[in-house]
C-alpha cells in the first residue's frame, strides 16, 4: 500500500494489467476444468472462475488505496462499492461449493463415479438418427386412411 496519491474514485480507469492477467489466467484454467466430465473438477473450475471474477472486480474498482474507513482521506481510499459486491459474490460462492459438493457426493453415491453422465433420452434420439429412423411417436403406418375405411366403420357405434 505504497501508492497513496490518486484516488479510487476516478472518472477514468487505467486498468492494472497485472490483475487483468491474473483474471485471464484464472478464468482460462477454470474454464478448461469446468469442461471436464468429473463434477469435482467442474466445481474446482467454477471456483477458479469465481476467484478470477473476484479479481476482476478489483480491476474495475480502480487503483488500490487505503481501506475504506471513515477517517481515511477519501482521496486515498479504495472504491468500497465493488468490494461490497465481491463480498456478496464470495459468500454465494461458499454456498455454491457446499451445494455442489453435496451434489458430487450424491452423484458418486448413486453411480460410483463423480463423472457427469450423458443424457439417456438424448442418446435414444441419436440412435434413431444413426439408424435413419423416424421418431418413436411417429405413426409409421403406410396404410391409406380411406382404403381401410370399411374396417374402421365396423367398429363404429351405431344405434
Amino acid at each position: 500500500m505504497t501508492t497513496l496519491a490518486p484516488t479510487g474514485f476516478e472518472s477514468t480507469l487505467t486498468p492494472n494489467i497485472t490483475l487483468v492477467l491474473v483474471v485471464v489466467g484464472l478464468v482460462a484454467v477454470g474454464t478448461a476444468l469446468a469442461l471436464d466430465r468429473s463434477l469435482v473438477r467442474v466445481l474446482l473450475g467454477m471456483v477458479l472462475i469465481g476467484n478470477g471474477v473476484a479479481v476482476l472486480y478489483l480491476v474495475v474498482s480502480g487503483r488500490a488505496g487505503r481501506a475504506p474507513f471513515v477517517g481515511e482521506d477519501p482521496a486515498a481510499m479504495s472504491d468500497p462499492l465493488p468490494q461490497a459486491m465481491v463480498l456478496t459474490a464470495i459468500v454465494i460462492s461458499l454456498a455454491t461449493i457446499g451445494f455442489l459438493l453435496a451434489l458430487s457426493y450424491r452423484l458418486w453415491q448413486i453411480s460410483g463415479t463423480d463423472d457427469v453422465p450423458d443424457d439417456a433420452e438424448d442418446a435414444r434420439i441419436q440412435r434413431l438418427a444413426r439408424d435413419d429412423e423416424t421418431s418413436e411417436t411417429y405413426d409409421r403406418s403406410e396404410e391409406s386412411t380411406t382404403t381401410s375405411d370399411e374396417r374402421a366403420e365396423a367398429g363404429e357405434s351405431r344405434g
Binding site: V42, S61, L81
Partner: peptide, 20 residues
C-alpha cells in the same frame, strides 16, 4: 446447476464490465 453457475459467472463478468 452447472449451466446456471456458468450463467451466473458470465452475468457477474457483465456487471463488472458495466461498472467499469
Amino acid at each position: 446447476v452447472v449451466v446456471s453457475l456458468l450463467s451466473s459467472a458470465l452475468f457477474l463478468i457483465g456487471i463488472a464490465a458495466t461498472y467499469a
